[in-house]
Computed example of a mutant assay.
Amino acid sequence: MTMMMFSLLLLLCIHCPVSMSVTVSSSKTKVEVHEHTDAVLSCDFRTEKDQNPRIEWKKKEKAVTFVYFNNKFIGSYAGRAKMEGAALTIHSVTQKDSGEYRCEVTASDDHVNFGEATVTLDVHVPPHIPSCEVPSSVFAGSDLELLCKDKQSVPPATYSWYKDNRALKVSSDAAYSMDARRGTLKFTSVSKVDSGMYRCESSNSVGAPKSCVAQQLKVIDYPVDITILIAGASGFVIVTLLCCICVCVCRRRGCREKEKKTKSTKSYNPPPPPPPPPPPIHNIKTYKPTQSFMI
């Protein structure tokens, strides 16, 4: 029984054609290069019959765009890229070239005539001069936050702060705190000893650190006259508020008394005056008969 099954399988393998398809792969699916260098995106393929397949490269962004199509480069890749077999080389890459690329091979004579491979390109950018936000002056006792940002470095930069060309370090007794990722330097309550020249430095694994120009920070005390002015203004506000409350209370009481008087006046209706007596009647003569007539 076993020999019969084996013979049947052997006959099927002999008489049935072998179905092959184009195969596409990449020896390096993730490429990391520095800015302004060349990036090589590998693409290897094998076909069954077709010796001259169609090769295309596309880039996936918000929409899929062509890089290499119909044996020529498209758009910004024209004049700064080349093909060696199916491998794509982009010269002097920038951050805009980062993204996902797809190598597509179409062999029309093969049984399964399409294959593809994906390669991700990451262009690393060295630090740029960061933007630093340092106020020129601040009052003592105030909260303060200094900001530093480098938006162009890839991978994202980390930050350090310097005062009078000396690196600031965070400790348990320090009057400030730093966030190396966000680039912030925070003071909860500045004092005059915090005055000085401040600058920030950005760095990553690609290139040399870059620093902004140092800026002067002055911490000044509140003048006495300003303190008095603030106290006087606060007292004036309190007195004004009390007066407004008293006026409102008095007006409400006065309105209630007027309402009571109005109601009492409307409820009393005096009776109407009596009508005047009729006038007296004078010089009225009475008629008396003097003779009687008989018929």
Rank of each mutant, 00 (worst) to 15 (best):
D225W: 11
S7H: 11
E116S: 15
P135C: 00
E61P: 01
P223E: 03
V224Y: 08
E116M: 14
P155G: 10
A86M: 06
A180E: 13
L217Y: 00
V18T: 12
F69R: 14
F6G: 06
I238F: 10
E35Y: 04
C16F: 13
K49A: 07
T118K: 14
I129C: 07
G141D: 00
I14M: 15
S292N: 14
L242T: 12
E56Y: 03
R199C: 09
R251I: 13
V93Q: 03
Y198R: 05
C132T: 10
N71F: 09
D221P: 04
K186D: 00
V219T: 03
F187C: 00
V67A: 04
S234T: 10
E145V: 15
T37Y: 03
I228L: 15
V237K: 09
T47V: 08
V18W: 09
A87P: 02
Y222Q: 13
E116C: 09
W57L: 01
H124K: 15
P272Q: 10
V31D: 02
V125L: 01
C212N: 13
I129L: 11
T227C: 08
D194S: 01
L242A: 10
S202K: 08
W57Q: 01
S26I: 02
C244D: 06
E145R: 11
E133V: 12
S177A: 10
V170C: 01
F236M: 12
T106S: 10
T94C: 04
T240S: 14
C200A: 06
A175Y: 02
N165E: 09
S264C: 11
M3F: 14
P156Y: 04
K192C: 02
R102V: 11
F73T: 02
S142H: 02
D38P: 08
L185R: 00
V24D: 01
M4T: 14
D173H: 11
D179G: 01
Y68W: 03
D150S: 04
Y101G: 04
V213P: 07
K266C: 11
G85M: 07
R182N: 14
P280H: 06
R166C: 05
T47N: 05
E104K: 14
G207Y: 02
K163M: 12
L229M: 12
Y268L: 11
H34S: 14
W57N: 05
Q152P: 03
V105M: 00
L217R: 00
S264R: 15
P278H: 05
K82T: 15
T118E: 09
L144D: 00
